[in-house]
Amino acid sequence: MTAVVEPPVARLAALPGVSTASRVGARAERARAAGRVLPVVPALARLLPEAGLRRGSTVAVHGGTSLLLALLAGAGAAGSWAAVVGMPSLGLAAAAEYGVDLTRLALVPHPGADLPAVVAALLDGVDVVAVQPETLQPAMARRLSARARHRGAVLLAAGAWPGADVELSCRREAWSGPSQGYGHLESRRARVRAHGRGAAARPTTTELHLPDSAGQVTPALPAPSLREATA
Rank of each mutant, 00 (worst) to 15 (best):
S89N: 10
S89D: 15
L90T: 05
L90C: 11
L90Q: 09
G91E: 06
G91C: 04
G91L: 08
G91Q: 09
L92C: 02
L92G: 04
L92M: 11
L92W: 02
A93E: 12
A93H: 10
A93Q: 08
A93S: 14
A93I: 05
A93G: 12
A93P: 03
A93D: 13
A93R: 11
A94G: 11
A94H: 11
A94Q: 12
A95D: 04
A95E: 02
A95Q: 06
A95L: 09
A96W: 01
A96E: 13
A96R: 11
A96M: 04
A96I: 00
E97W: 00
E97V: 08
E97F: 00
E97I: 00
E97S: 11
E97Q: 12
E97A: 15
E97P: 00
E97L: 09
Y98E: 11
Y98H: 15
Y98R: 15
Y98M: 15
G99A: 05
G99I: 00
G99W: 00
G99N: 02
G99L: 04
G99V: 00
G99P: 00
V100H: 04
V100C: 09
V100E: 02
V100N: 02
D101Y: 02
D101G: 04
L102M: 13
L102S: 12
L102T: 14
L102R: 14
T103F: 03
R104E: 09
R104Q: 13
L105H: 02
L105P: 00
L105Q: 05
L105I: 06
L105K: 03
L105C: 07
A106S: 14
L107H: 05
L107T: 01
L107N: 03
L107S: 02
L107F: 04
L107A: 05
V108K: 00
V108C: 07
V108A: 11
V108P: 03
V108R: 01
V108S: 05
V108Q: 03
P109L: 08
P109R: 10
P109Y: 09
P109A: 09
P109N: 10
P109I: 06
P109Q: 08
H110G: 10
H110D: 15
H110P: 00
H110A: 15
P111H: 10
P111V: 08
G112L: 06
G112Y: 07
G112P: 07
A113M: 11
A113W: 07
D114A: 15
D114P: 01
D114I: 01
D114K: 08
L115F: 01
L115M: 10
P116S: 13
P116G: 13
P116Y: 13
P116T: 13
A117C: 06
V118S: 10
V118W: 05
